[in-house]
Nucleic acid binder design. Structure first.
Lengths: 150, 150
DNA sequence: ATATGATACGTTAAAACATATCATATGCAG
DNA sequence: CTGCATATGATATGTTTTAACGTATCATAT
């Protein structure tokens, strides 16, 4: 089986999973929201909001930035998409959301390429540090810049 | 001794430390750079670039945004200042730069208030996760959103 | 003394990113 | 069907960051 086929399957899985999640939580995965999510899935990496505007606009119909931002807000609230603040871009959240794990987005400083890793070990260490800082709860997402080997 | 006095002492310490660091690395802590750094020190928290423009501008002379950004870039390169990507703001980096520790900026989601904690435990856990992701090196800074107790 | 190079800063403009506002449409509960 | 909440369309504006180009300053070389 080609990697392309695998890729396609995973895309479908993600879309189904998104659909299920929304259904179960009474969230409306409207056409625009679904298209934004699909675009992020297919891109395989972080994409800027204005890039999404371009990619989802046709000759006849140009979407307004605010439309994309609204869709992104929805997807982020649903936990399907994560914003990379250091890159001003947006990326799908992989994996089953394990409540106890920290979802770390490693971002390559040069290319912007990202890889997501879930780690309960990091989650625990961060939680401990948070207590020192007087923080009672912390986001389960974080972003770390670095360099990919090779 | 009042907390104010303590505060003043710490400010002086930070400024001296910055001065030393630059001297030792042949970096030029010019007046503008020093003023930007001092302003960040005195504010005690994250400050936006345009805030800095306002605060460092006088009636007769208004600094251009780019001037501030350049000073901030210098200070960031020197490791004296950290950019809070989630807040579009800038904050001094406290503490002796411990090479083995992760410098975590906890950011209160509501107020934007920050507290910096250094943790070798987090550094190690993140390093391990980075290896899983195929990352050979990671930034010693990270930013975590959360909520302050109370 | 004059030229060259390196670095910082000034000035103007624009790119890139994000939100406000108000109008219109669409779904859905009563 | 009606009214209310929610989603989208359209336009404008706000905010943050960088680009491009010129000048000032100072050290060093010719």
């Amino acid at each position: 089986m080609s990697t392309k086929a695998l890729r396609k399957e995973e895309e479908d899985n993600l879309l189904r999973r998104a659909d299920d999640l929304c259904r179960q939580n009474n969230l409306r995965l409207t056409p625009i929201r679904e298209r934004v999510y699909r675009e992020l899935v297919q891109s395989g990496g972080p994409v800027g909001a204005y890039d999404l505007v371009d990619r989802l606009s046709s000759e006849k119909k140009r979407l307004a930035p605010v439309t994309i931002y609204r869709a992104l807000d929805f997807l982020r609230d649903a936990g399907l998409v994560h914003r990379l603040a250091t890159q001003n871009s947006y990326v799908i959240s992989h994996g089953q959301p394990d409540v106890n794990a920290m979802k770390i987005m490693f971002v390559d400083s040069k290319t912007g390429e990202t890889i997501e890793v879930h780690s309960t070990e990091v989650a625990e260490a961060v939680k401990k540090a948070a207590e020192q800082a007087g923080f009672k709860s912390v986001s389960p997402f974080m972003e770390v810049e670095g360099e990919i080997a090779q």
